[in-house]
Nucleic acid binder design. Structure first.
Lengths: 157, 157
DNA sequence: ATCATATAGTACGATATCGAATCAAACAAG
DNA sequence: CTTGTTTGATTCGATATCGTACTATATGAT
């Protein structure tokens, strides 16, 4: 058996680089998720916060499917997340007047407040991290991450 | 009410940058996880693969707790993941001869093969992505991601 | 030796994730 | 209109995640 037949990613230097990068990204995502959720309390998850934040930033009155696509999650997952938010009265779901099958999602006052509180709670952690990480580095990395995200996104079947 | 009292992350330019970066990282992690798991089949998750890969790369005979720490997950989660791997006979769990409370995790032949197959299956996708993304950019981003990961990691309580 | 405390791991319960199946409404073709 | 297909959303079931509580062993102090 030749050495080159071994499934050894070390032999594909470039692939190794990408593997390592995606691995670091996975760990960072894991850590920041844990950090966020420890600040949110209740049973709120990253997805709950993400949905609220999305509605604040891009405006509410969106459909669940639209949100599922924005977050790259299956629509069943979004359905569940929205049900959790509705149960806590952080959003309202009303029938879509333009499509009898659909719904539209609106923030409640409590929903906006919870999102604002969460941001106020977390921002100091983020701000404290910035000078340590380096604002220049952050500025440099962000566009590259966007490029990678777009690329991965379009590689989806 | 003054405008500056609004909880608006736009007013903290630096924080916004970090938020956006972590957001992109979260989406990329999500996409690459989905990609990986679609290639793994069965009910195998990212964590299952990660555990097998860890054991191959750093050597087996490790303890569950050690692995939980390496992956930044609670030990109960690691316990569940390892139980899934053992049920599929991809690992063996034996009592730790040096600690009556503990166990040691060993790969089975099937476990090694599954990990190797997974890597062989995924590598072409990764390699195809590299020239598009740019090897230079990847080399530039990786150390910065490591720095961010280390920083987030040490910020954990 | 005894007892208190710490540590490795598991059991269990609440909730989350997500694919398959389902249902209702919209739409398209004739 | 009628029928077939597509689309928005939910239900259901299997599995995952993770906090709390628990068991068993180890360790440290006296």
């Amino acid at each position: 058996m030749k050495k080159s037949e071994l499934p050894d990613i070390q032999q594909n230097g470039g692939a190794q680089l990408m593997f390592d990068m995606l691995n670091e990204i996975g760990i960072i995502a894991q850590l920041s998720r844990t950090l966020l959720e420890s600040r949110l309390g209740d049973g709120l998850t990253q997805h709950h916060f993400g949905a609220l934040n999305h509605l604040v930033r891009l405006g509410d009155g969106r459909t669940p499917l639209e949100m599922a696509r924005a977050f790259q999650v299956p629509k069943t997952s979004m359905s569940h997340t929205l049900a959790g938010l509705e149960k806590r009265e952080l959003i309202r779901m009303v029938p879509n007047p333009e499509d009898g099958r659909g719904k539209l999602i609106y923030l409640t006052t409590a929903g906006r407040q919870l999102r604002d509180n969460a941001i106020n709670t977390i921002t100091p952690d983020i701000v404290a991290m910035l000078p340590q990480f380096g604002e220049e580095d952050a500025s440099a990395v962000l566009p590259l991450l966007r490029k990678l995200r777009v690329q991965l996104d379009s590689a989806r079947d």
